[in-house]
Design a protein around this nucleic acid. Sequence first.
RNA 1: CGGGACGUGGCGCAGCUUGGUAGCGCGCAUCGUUCGGGACGAUGAGGUCGCCGGUUCAAAUCCGGCCGUCCCGACCA
Length: 474
Amino acid sequence: MAAARRAPVITPQAEDFPRWYQDVLNKAELADNGPVRGTMVIRPYGFGLWERMQAELDRRIKLAGAENAYFPLFIPQSYLTRESEHVEGFSPELAVVTHGGGKELEEPLVVRPTSETVVGEFMAKWIQSYRDLPLLLNQWANVVRWELRPRVFLRTSEFLWQEGHTAHATREDAAAYAAKILHEVYADFMVNVLAIPLYLGIKPSYDRFAGAVNTLACEAMMRDGKALQMGTSHELGQNFARAFDILYLDGDNNQQLAWTTSWGASTRMVGGLIMAHGDDNGLRIPPALAHIQAVVIMVREGDEVDAAARKLVADIGDHGVKVRLDDRTGAPLGRRLTDWELKGVPVRIEVGPRELERNEVTVVRRDTGDKQRVSVEGASAAVAELMDQIQDDMLAAATEFRDSNTADAATINEVLDAAATGFARVPWQVVAGEDAKAALADKAVTVRCIERADGTVPDNENEPDLVAYCARSY
RNA sequence: CGGGACGUGGCGCAGCUUGGUAGCGCGCAUCGUUCGGGACGAUGAGGUCGCCGGUUCAAAUCCGGCCGUCCCGACCA
């Protein structure tokens, strides 16, 4: 209704999706570019989103049994070279410190691109016996990778993340834990909090983490049909245990190499949230994530309005909803409404004299734009109820979008066709070969992950009847 | 790192072809009128045109180099 009369404040998605993304970053006050190429300044509203992600992930990580620790930012360069695939994979993107205290250092220091190596060094020290296993660690940290093509949140030279590192006595135990993280931490968080549906699977062997023997991934579809890897969980086999002497004595008094895993999810998820849910009016934040879940807007100045709005804020807060009051009656209403829409606050409640005459307020959903009049007395309960409703509806809408933009394909050409606008689901055999890989790469399409036909995660890519999801990606 | 576009007050842009004392819209400040979907008027603050060098009496405008941003690739959370 009123939507048609609104002047767009950001570039419409259909017109220029990358520009829409930039506009949202600016208008919703999420982040700015930093002074050094590829770095970003995360503004308070954007950091609020990250803090909620941290809190929700951290809770799940602890439920999975891992404890937080902290390892240093600087890593001796020699550590990186201990695992050959790891060095090879990360060397091109390292930031290296060669001077300190005004002198050239005897050994250059690497600014961590990830911490498998330092963690490995200390795991070796801390683990003596099978009784010390499993050792389940996590750290929240910043890491640096000298990216060639940075994009705010999606690929920055410095980013924030959590990186988990675990050591186990057996391959089976390590594999089970890597899968547990994928399902119980990442998928549970992304689906139930971020309301982003996922394809979970393994990465093709050529696309594994440097040094891993198996990489599990969460792939999400953005609203332009491209894929974003939202998190990964790796089985590292005994590669790092061998490189760092992570040994333990088993029950028979024999020295054994441990089996390790690592897993990470980063500030990239903020970019994923923006692109998975955002629309032409800006951000849409699912209630379970929002650090501002509802905003009560005083439409006009006035004692009655003021009193009613403040009481409503208190009542809504009592119903367990994180609520803000917008009492900036000096600013034009339209401006304020637009601001809250840009920021994606799930529900707004408009309180003005017109409503109050009938003892009502207007409740508006950000996800659908639906407006309803509710009685002042019933408003807080209605808002509280909407939280769950919106959460469910956003996941349903995102799932519907993903499914309707995922097409079955049987040939390379069909894959390319489907991947031009969305995802292709294709028998893994069709795209597994080198020629197929090259044909897809020619159109910037890659295999995002490999699943079993029933949607479960396979043990390896050689199982029969696997399906691959292919797409263009960020 | 390869290809393309671009860099002019906080943001978005014009000016550059045909060198000659920097302009528009939005935003911001003050005042007034407004106020249920980014209000209007008046007044005002704010830039030396990404950086370095060259040509010239004179450079935002021409030439060279560098840096940065965005897009498309390759690399990647």
